[in-house]
Amino acid sequence: MAEMTLVEAVNLALAYEMKADKSVVVLGEDVGKNGGVFRATQGLLDKFGPDRVRDTPLAESMIAGISIGMAAAGLKPVAEFQFMGFLYPGYDQIVNHAARIRNRTRGHMTCPVVFRTPYGCGIRSPEHHSESTEAVLAHIPGLRVVIPSSPKRAYGLLLASIRDPDPVIFLEPSRLYRWAKQDVIDDGKALPLDTCFTLRVGTDVTLVTWGAMVKETLAAADLLSQNGVSAEVIDVATIKPLDIDTIIASVEKTGRCVIIHEAAKTGGVGADISALVAERALLSLRAPVQRITGYDTIVPYAKMEKYYLPNEHQIVEAVTNIMEFA
């Protein structure tokens, strides 16, 4: 057991699975000697050699496309897009091929690939390095979209994603990469996909979130408890496919639901969760579902990003308002 950051836990999971399974191959821009721009792949080249830790030419559609070919040919590629803003050239390959090769071949060919990428704002990086566009991936049938929010979940969910027989988009909140350390046991145990994690049990309101916003949501839950409001905090973790049952069970208990995400509001995954809560738990609701999200703007550059990111006070205010609704 060792205390480590989220990005170190990603590295630990990669090393574990590469040792356990020779078909796992890591590829991407600067993942070799440089160990990745965030050091997620540090040391892997020395341990596993250049056949299995491959610096690619700089072309993201290529990274996606060759990973699909490798996966269909029996390897388990774990490919890195350097930032989510640079995933888009690979989107065509992901949507038209990775997500549907199993369906197109009636199961005769599969695509057990993991596409990892850092995502989200709040680390003062240049433009295009701060995207939270998970909804454009979560919309696609055939994909899984998995987002860890702690070192332990990064380790366990990445192992599960690599072992999953279908394509997984693994979004790593860059704001949490070195935010907090946690003891992680390197035992190779995966955590379940398609499953929410209830981080805090409560009775008055259900706070639904994922990724880096888990930080502000937990802080809000602390503040709320000081005001006598008991918040349940759910980390969705796999936003595609949704574990809606856990969310509905919680809302049926609390009667209130606030969804918090960093991505722009319109067409965000929060809209889908909100609709599902309305469809399935309307009569349990004691107040309208609320969404606290990033604005429907372009993610601002570093100087303004603190105004874009939802904070714990906005969450507290939204909860306080709906507590008074009924």
């Binding site: 491959r54 559609s61 290529m62 996606a64 496309g65 060759i66 990973s67 699909i68 070919g69 490798m70 996966a71 269909a72 040919a73 029996g74 390897l75 590629p77 390959q93 091929h97």
Partner: peptide
């Protein structure tokens, strides 16, 4: 690209 990926494998 898929062909290049298979060839890599």
């Amino acid at each position: 690209l898929h062909a290049a990926g298979v060839a890599t494998a």
